[in-house]
Design a protein around this nucleic acid. Structure first.
Lengths: 210, 210
DNA sequence: TAGATTGTTAATCGATTAACAATC
DNA sequence: TAGATTGTTAATCGATTAACAATC
């Protein structure tokens, strides 16, 4: 089988982790790795590693294992990290600034084109070479530049309305840092929810006997 | 059944979302909700909602549904959000500052006790009432205050060593924002990985036909 | 009472694990 | 060749969905 028609989310979510571990292996000079060794590193089973990779093709060689550099490049291609898509940030508060300043969008397949905010104090400023525009000009910007995704780092309250407006402007994906669920069926939403994550940790500690 | 002996991670990860939706329902003045209506809101099935909640007890009433306020309080109790546990932050860069300034640890069941960094420029400063201490004093602080969890907002390179040191100091949970996997079996690790999440979105957009 | 909706058991679906022939 | 390890099929396990009796 060359490529599974539809790959499950469970597998997709492991892809960046595989890539990360292959990067690390590359850095320490490993040029091959077996499914058993990779599974041990990642706390998976060897079966799972082979099943996961075989959703996308045959990357290994019997009796040898996987070539680190080849698998690394293959995973980057599968994820689509080289053809950069365009992104905009909505909300230049503390978190928006942090992402502009310290996060590498390019390593994840995106290039950041502009930022938006409603606060006159930040509109017009430039953060890490990104100009902060007035949220009023969002539609105009979208018509002109057709950004692929939007990063939502604004308060939860205005988020659903902004998300809807973005989708109407042709946004394909939303990286949602707001503490609310977005009901946009016409766009792909990827949530990062700090509170949900920490509450989960709270529960896990409470119910463990550590 | 009063309480399932061990609840699956799939269910646990949905708990904060249930709580969030119950909060919203409470805010708009709803005093009851059926599993069908809650499922529609959350894009789940009614069956799943009932199965999920019944892992922890019987919170509904036949012919009526669930009382919003009662279910909300029950979920908060199940998650353990009231008995505040103590947290420390390791790494007061941009992200560490953002969390100190804008994130409500208390809403998630934690109280932030101290922050640590290796950089003399920030050591001794106070951010949102939290004193930034020298990472050299980490062991001393842990012995004295026994923090329950550590928030890792430091670079990936030193993270595994710091995590190990924290576990030796009795840390029970790690909220890991570093872009690396931690192999600490003696502590519960909750990862927030920006790059993994954005790469997943990259893949999903690439493979969708939006 | 009649209608609505839960709690719970059984059925289905999907993901993980095991096994092993193929082959480098 | 012999040993190692993949790709792939089959078996198992777990999670989701469906169904329905209980009951408010």
């Amino acid at each position: 089988m060359e490529q599974k028609s539809i790959v499950s989310m469970a597998v997709v979510r492991r892809l960046p982790r595989y890539l990360r571990h292959l990067d690390e292996l590359h850095k320490i000079g490993a040029d091959k790795i077996s499914s058993t060794a990779l599974a041990a590193r990642m706390e998976l089973t060897a079966s799972q590693v082979r099943q996961d990779l075989n959703c996308f093709g045959c990357f290994g060689q019997q009796g040898y294992g996987y070539n680190v550099e080849f698998l690394r490049q293959s995973l980057a291609d599968i994820l689509g990290l080289s053809g950069p898509r365009s992104a905009i940030i909505i909300g230049m508060g503390n978190l928006g600034h942090t992402l502009c300043n310290n996060f590498s969008f390019s390593r994840c397949g995106f290039s950041l084109g502009a930022a938006f905010d409603a606060n006159p104090a930040v509109i017009g400023s430039v953060v890490a070479k990104i100009r902060v525009l007035d949220i009023k000009d969002l539609d105009k910007y979208c018509s002109a530049h057709k950004p692929d995704i939007a990063v939502l780092t604004l308060p939860a309250a205005p988020a659903p309305a902004i998300a809807h407006r973005l989708v109407q402007n042709g946004i394909k994906g939303i990286w949602n840092f707001t503490n609310t669920d977005l009901n946009e069926t016409r766009a792909l939403v990827e949530n990062i929810n700090f509170a949900d994550s920490l509450m989960t940790l709270c529960y896990r500690i409470k119910t463990s006997n550590l």
